[in-house]
Design a protein around this nucleic acid. Sequence first.
DNA 1: CTCTTTTTGTTGTATTTCCAACAGACTTAT
DNA 2: ATAAGTCTGTTGGAAATACAACAAAAAGAG
Lengths: 219, 219
Amino acid sequence: MKKYLEILKTVKLFKGIKESDLMLLLGCLSGKLQHYEKNEIVFMSGESINSFGIVLAGQVQIVQEDFYGNRSILANIGVSNLFGESFACAGIKNLPVSVIATAESDLLFIDCQRLATPCVNSCAFHSQLIQNMLHITAMKNISLMQKIEFVTKRTTREKLLAYLSSEAQKAGSSCFSIPFNRQELADYLSVDRSAMSAELGKLRDEGILKFHKNHFELL
Amino acid sequence: MKKYLEILKTVKLFKGIKESDLMLLLGCLSGKLQHYEKNEIVFMSGESINSFGIVLAGQVQIVQEDFYGNRSILANIGVSNLFGESFACAGIKNLPVSVIATAESDLLFIDCQRLATPCVNSCAFHSQLIQNMLHITAMKNISLMQKIEFVTKRTTREKLLAYLSSEAQKAGSSCFSIPFNRQELADYLSVDRSAMSAELGKLRDEGILKFHKNHFELL
DNA sequence: CTCTTTTTGTTGTATTTCCAACAGACTTAT
DNA sequence: ATAAGTCTGTTGGAAATACAACAAAAAGAG
């Protein structure tokens, strides 16, 4: 766990917790570190969970799949971010989504019960953790709204431009990388991959953007 | 304010607060009651807000509008539910959405600062309020995900059926009312109104559902 | 009640998306 | 280096959607 101390310090859930208290706190929360291979399933939809995760290395995706096999990617969770905490905090028993590691990943799992109920040692941090968690779920709300903004755009072109400019803004530069390959991007924006590929080609021909693999530049 | 005591007792934010403490608490939070006419704007996109609202009567809608005039309804907020709290908790300065009263409404506004910082009187409730707020934002997360599930369906028919069956489930009956007229439903599901109307007609002809105005029955 | 406005349903056409199939580029394993 | 597998771009036809225009029904105003 110690090798991830630097990462843990950047996790928003632990904001305001002293570095010296961090390991102690993790013990109290009975945090469990686990390794996942690429494409391994972390949580399966329908499953009942009693812990949420923190990505310490790699990345995971939150995925919805209907029984026609249509896949929809709700979110990509990168290093130092949480997943599953909304279901935990809302007390949802059966997961309506799956979580999949899309790269070799190290994930830290924390028991929700432990977070919600103060214990002798962590009591001092408890109130801080809840407040941090509130901030995190509120931020997730915002990014879900932003995703809705993308997918409700009428055409593939508009969806692409809305998504890409938001990524550029997030990166603070017109050059940026995205955490998706083409099929994943299509599943995130909820469009047809081939049509999207064609549209990307058009946008490039019109001089609106450049791209190479998952690296983009808006012009 | 007293006339709404029964409603206030059902507000999830105040869960665990004794009825006798409620009015005291509202004073501490400097809650302000305000009346709105139908179609009046409550919050305007771009505005900077420092309070969130609770619907005591009527309803409001959370609306996104792009500069082509395409409207997207993110959510409908009914009696005893909160709006704007995600932006408050996330510390978002400029509202990315608008809030509009879609019926004559009484709204209670609460200052975020007051909620976040304990004061001499409300201190005892403070921790409870934060926990309740966490639960509320987590639940909102879930309903946003559900909305994404609707709008990412490929066809108008699938969107309708996904939405209507979720409403039936929520109502606990195959008969239920929806809080939208046709144009609003189209803007919520992000489809063309006329195409949606046609699809509703087909579904009725096929004996899959019955409807009259905003009252539906799944068969 | 009558007139006006809003809401809902219907239709036809242009546009867009979806799907399937395929070829080339790139990766990975052996 | 070869072969198998994956990812990306391209195309054509089928299906679905968006848009505009209009008629009928319902709601609201005077």
